[in-house]
Computed example of a mutant assay.
Amino acid sequence: MIHYRVPPEDHDRIVTQYLPDTTGKTCQVSLRDGDVPESEYLPLVGWAIVVRVCEEALPRVTFEPVVDDEYRGHIALGDLEDEIGPLTLVDIS
Rank of each mutant, 00 (worst) to 15 (best):
M1T: 00
H3V: 00
V6N: 02
P7A: 06
P8L: 08
E9N: 04
E9M: 05
H11D: 09
D12F: 01
D12N: 09
R13F: 07
I14C: 04
T16S: 11
Y18S: 05
Y18M: 09
L19R: 06
L19S: 00
P20C: 02
D21N: 14
D21S: 13
T22H: 11
T22C: 02
G24S: 09
G24A: 09
K25C: 03
T26N: 08
C27M: 11
Q28N: 00
V29K: 06
V29T: 05
S30V: 12
L31Y: 09
R32V: 03
D33V: 10
D33K: 13
G34I: 00
G34A: 00
D35H: 01
D35E: 07
S39D: 14
S39I: 07
S39Y: 08
E40G: 02
E40M: 11
Y41I: 00
L42R: 06
L42F: 03
V45G: 02
V45D: 00
W47V: 09
I49Y: 12
V50A: 04
V51I: 13
R52H: 10
E56L: 13
E56K: 14
L58K: 10
L58D: 15
P59N: 11
T62D: 15
P65R: 13
P65D: 13
V66Q: 14
V66N: 12
D68W: 01
Y71I: 08
Y71D: 15
R72T: 06
A76H: 05
A76N: 06
L77I: 15
L80H: 10
E81K: 13
E81C: 13
E81F: 05
D82Y: 12
I84R: 06
I84M: 07
G85F: 07
P86A: 11
P86I: 05
L87G: 04
L89N: 09
L89G: 05
L89W: 10
D91W: 03
D91F: 01
I92A: 10
S93W: 08
